[in-house]
Amino acid sequence: MTSTYDLHMPATAREAIDLLARHGDDAHVMAGGTSLVLMMQQGLIRPAHVVSLHKVSELRGIRSTADGSLEIGALATHREIERSPLVRAHSAMLAEAFARIATVRIREQATLGGNLAHADPAQDPPPALIAVGALVLIQGPGPAREIPLEDLLVDIFTTSLEPGELIVGVRIPPLAAGTRAVYLKFLPRTEDDYATVSVAAAAVVAGDGTVRQLRVALGAVGATPIRARAAEAALLGLKADEKAIKAAAERAAEATDPIADGRGSAGYKRSMARVFTERALRAVLA
């Protein structure tokens, strides 16, 4: 049962930041609320103050910027991202990754900013976004800043946000021409489950088959989503044949540190990380 709290409904991001600064650790931010409501219902957190962002209209919306970046506001719901023509034009992989999160009701309520701030390592958006080089836009008491998503997610349910800071959106720079991207999610139980392992990959391959660009990110295999830099390095500048892909997927699996749970043992998940990385690499390189 949820303990009671004082609800604050700021109209602007600045007001929200001021409220967070004033109430410190006693305050939690609510975006869509899917995770926060559950955590309060289960008694895992008992904030004295909740700062709900639902009236902060400046955090809504999805737009293309002059330099060809895609900017997604922190309050964009998963469903808005799934259905946005702008998102699909920028990266169909991203739209499809969001379309396969949980169920339609969750996607209608859950927001991008809330998802990232929750820092649950089994969620789908982080690996998909890391693969396309997403940057997180942060405002707070100090100067606004923009950091790579992989630098936001520092531990399980833990971000690098400073006290009083708020995620205001995500920016995805223009993707190089010819980028191929894929998001694979291993769901051995039900379609609406958390991934047992997930792999996102985005690549640019030259006409002669040389791997020019490659980003690989995995979810649900450690305390945070991981960027498989050793796997990327194993293929960059080479012509990716089956042997090279298998070796790179081995590097990705070595970088994982999964926990055993109802979705499988640590060893099983590591094996599946290898298998699904192989499949993702074949999809974007072969």
């Binding site: 609320g33 899917t34 409501v37 559950l38 219902q41 709900s52 969750i106 309520q109």
Partner: peptide, 23 residues
């Protein structure tokens, strides 16, 4: 009561949501 089963599905301004998860 955790947004999974759909028994509490309602429309809010036409949007399908779980009443058990919405403040």
């Amino acid at each position: 009561s955790v947004g999974v089963c759909g028994a509490c599905s309602v429309l809010v301004d036409g949007v399908l949501l779980s009443a058990c998860l919405l403040p």
